[in-house]
Computed example of a mutant assay.
Amino acid sequence: MAEIRYLRAVNQALDDAMAADPSVVIFGEDVSEAGGSFGATRGLRDRYGAGRVRDTPISEATIAGAAVGAALSGLKPVIEIMFMDFTTLVMDAMVNQAAKARFMFGGQGAVPMVLRTPHGGGLGAGPQHSQCLEAWFAHVPGLKVVCPADPASAYGLLRAAIDDPDPVLVIENKALYAMKAETPEPLEFIPIGKAATVRSGRDVTIVSYGAAVKTACDAATRLAVDGIQAEVIDLRSLQPWDEAAVLASLTKTHRLVVVHEAVEAFGIGAEIVARMADVGFDELDGPIVRVGAPFMPVPFSKALETAYLPSADAVIRAVQRTLA
């Protein structure tokens, strides 16, 4: 085991992928000379040259469109969109082109590209630099979406995404970039579509992803003081998601809480709740409860942002509600 930061794990995944496959290229705003806004690509230009690690104009639509063309031409581009909010400008390339190519070309046109982007609050970045928009992309057939919650997942899911023949969005919560954790050495691929049980329990299942996994674990630790054993599942992959793992846990605990930082309405949690209410109805001994952000933009104010983000207290209240 070795301790590694989340951001370093991202950098290591990119480094290892580029070393293993010369068709892997990286481009985006400030990713080359500056090493990216958060430092995820730092040092890669020195090792692989400006031809494989390219700075681009400030045009997210151009970045995504060029990546689709590069992928169709035989490269494996990894693009960085500085904040997930700016993915509003990549929708045509990702939704109408990358996601549809395999279908439109009768299975003969793969688009092996990765879009990396940070989402989430906690840094006081305000309503245009803090949104969690993953549900938009998870709704689109042809796209895969992953959201790692720890350094090992950040490495493993990014390597799997780069190796995937189809377009994958890798969403990283920027509040996790400084996170340190013990990870296995060497770091390994993590298959897309497989959840992880990060804490076992018998009384209630808490399903989460990204930064909200720590919130769920904090709540589970506090619940244990009162004798309530919560099982915490980190989805890791949002599209496809591990329905079987969630159902297996629900079958054991008979109660379910879903937690995410994104706005609660029409979020990833809504899909999980709908499916479990269908396929897991006979296992339920209490209502399924969602915990998410309120239906409003992310505040700039630190105090308001703290109140806006889902908390361990909110998860505990949700667990108490389903147990009642």
Rank of each mutant, 00 (worst) to 15 (best):
R5F: 03
L7Y: 02
A9H: 03
A17F: 07
A17D: 00
M18P: 01
A19P: 05
V24L: 04
I26G: 02
F27R: 08
F27A: 09
A40I: 06
A40F: 05
T41C: 06
R42C: 11
Y48F: 12
R54V: 13
D55V: 06
T56P: 09
E60A: 12
A61I: 08
A61W: 09
L72Y: 04
K76G: 00
P77Q: 03
I79C: 06
E80D: 03
I81T: 05
D85A: 07
F86A: 07
F86T: 10
L89H: 11
D92P: 02
N96Q: 13
N96D: 15
N96L: 12
A99T: 04
A101D: 09
R102V: 10
R102E: 13
Q108H: 13
G109K: 05
G109D: 09
P112D: 00
P112K: 00
P112S: 03
V114P: 08
P118D: 00
G120I: 13
A125T: 13
G126L: 14
P127F: 14
P127G: 09
Q131E: 05
L133A: 14
A135N: 06
H139W: 06
H139F: 11
V140A: 07
P141N: 07
K144C: 09
K144W: 05
P148Y: 01
D150G: 11
D150H: 14
Y155H: 03
L157N: 03
R159L: 10
I162C: 00
D166T: 01
N173S: 10
Y177S: 06
Y177W: 09
L187N: 03
F189P: 05
I190H: 07
I192V: 05
G193R: 00
S200I: 13
S208M: 08
G210Q: 06
G210V: 08
A211M: 14
A212S: 08
T215G: 09
T215K: 12
C217W: 11
D218S: 13
A220W: 11
L223P: 02
V225M: 14
D226H: 15
G227V: 10
G227M: 05
E231W: 02
P240H: 02
E243F: 01
A245N: 03
L247V: 10
T253L: 03
T253H: 04
V257N: 12
V259M: 10
E261R: 15
I268F: 11
A270M: 10
I272Q: 12
D278R: 00
D278M: 04
D278F: 04
F281A: 10
E283R: 07
E283G: 06
P287Y: 05
I288A: 15
R290Y: 02
F295R: 12
F295A: 15
M296Y: 06
M296C: 12
P297V: 15
P297W: 12
F300H: 15
K302I: 12
Y308H: 15
Y308Q: 11
A312I: 07
V319H: 07
L323S: 12
